[in-house]
């Protein structure tokens, strides 16, 4: 298997996920006439956008052998901050964007800095920052508050045919990050550190700086997701990020990226996000309680990991 295959070409796991998507579609067609409508297709895509962005961030972190659990607190905090500043003018919106992006990167740098330079396991570091930020968000406001300019809200609802603007943006992001992993030294370092950190260090790679950059990128993508979510809600919800920490991991693992790092890529994550979104949609049409969706999601993640565990042994 060559390098290019590593980054882009379809691998068995991708084919499995594609087959599952096909099955979900077949069930969807037979479950409801409304499934195949342009309206529903666009709605499902709307529901994917935020998760797709944080799952992309999580993919990068997991590829490097780390994990980022800060999204729950960070998203809530950044949503609240964004809505508090953005107000109703274009100028305020730009200021809010700059502030949220800067804060997202700062949160990531703190996560990466503590992980790389102090040596705290990223699970602990990011769980800590997540808890702090979740508290901070609720200190700022107990109720959803603030606002965004109407044109920005409209923009997050905008569509090109059946494709929401948000989805086009997500596709561009995935292509960009995929290209970064394939063609930049930063991308190679992410795989190298995830595969064997000690070997990467002996090879003269700046392991610590790279880790800080990885978490900073993760924080930046988290800020992007926060701006989108706030635009959709039209208000800053201090509980907006709840659940996104663990939900961001599911598509990464189902998409075939190794939890231990070093192997995988963004294509698998993208396919898994699509699978999970349509699965939820079809279960809705079948009038199955969302609690069953949780059960289904849990079964899928265990099945995915079992699949790789079995392959690893052979």
């Amino acid at each position: 298997m060559s390098t290019i295959a590593r980054a882009t070409r379809a691998q068995p796991v991708h084919l499995v996920v594609i087959a599952l998507i096909a099955i979900v579609f077949v069930i969807g067609f037979s479950a409801s006439d409304r499934f195949a409508t342009p309206l529903n297709m666009a709605n499902v895509q709307d529901q994917m956008v935020a998760l797709a962005i944080v799952a992309l961030a999580q993919t990068i972190v997991i590829l490097s052998g780390g994990i980022d659990l800060s999204y729950a607190g960070a998203l809530s905090f950044l949503c609240v901050v964004f809505a508090a500043i953005a107000g109703d003018s274009a100028g305020a919106l730009l200021l809010a964007m700059a502030a949220v992006v800067a804060l997202g990167i700062l949160i990531g740098m703190i996560n990466g800095g503590i992980t790389a330079y102090v040596g705290v396991h990223p699970l602990i570091t990011t769980l800590g920052t997540s808890t702090i930020l979740a508290g901070a968000a609720l200190l700022i406001t107990r109720q959803p508050s603030g606002s965004v300019p109407l044109f920005f809200e409209d923009f997050t609802y905008g569509r090109l045919g059946v494709m929401p603007f948000g989805m086009i943006f997500v596709i561009a992001l995935y292509l960009l990050i995929g290209f970064m992993l394939w063609r930049t030294t930063f991308g190679t370092r992410i795989y190298a550190i995830g595969d064997n950190e000690a070997a990467a260090a002996v090879s003269g790679l700046p392991v610590r700086q790279t880790k800080v950059a990885i978490y900073a990128l993760s924080g930046l993508l988290c800020a992007v997701a926060a701006m989108y979510m706030t635009g959709r809600f039209g208000v800053g919800d201090p509980r907006a990020g709840v659940g996104f920490d663990l939900r961001s991991i599911t598509p990464v693992i189902v998409g075939g990226t190794l939890l231990a790092g070093g192997k995988g890529g963004v294509l698998g994550t993208a396919l898994a996000v699509i699978l999970l979104a349509f699965l939820a949609n079809v279960l809705n049409f079948m009038n199955i309680s969302s609690y069953y969706q949780w059960i289904a999601e849990g079964l899928i993640i265990i099945a995915a990991v079992s699949f790789f565990a079995g392959k690893g042994k052979s």
Binding site: T188, A192, A198
Partner: peptide
């Protein structure tokens, strides 16, 4: 003594 090569990367990388 301990290999510093990385399995997930290609030989050239």
């Amino acid at each position: 003594q301990e290999f510093s090569v990385l399995g997930a990367l290609s030989i050239a990388e």
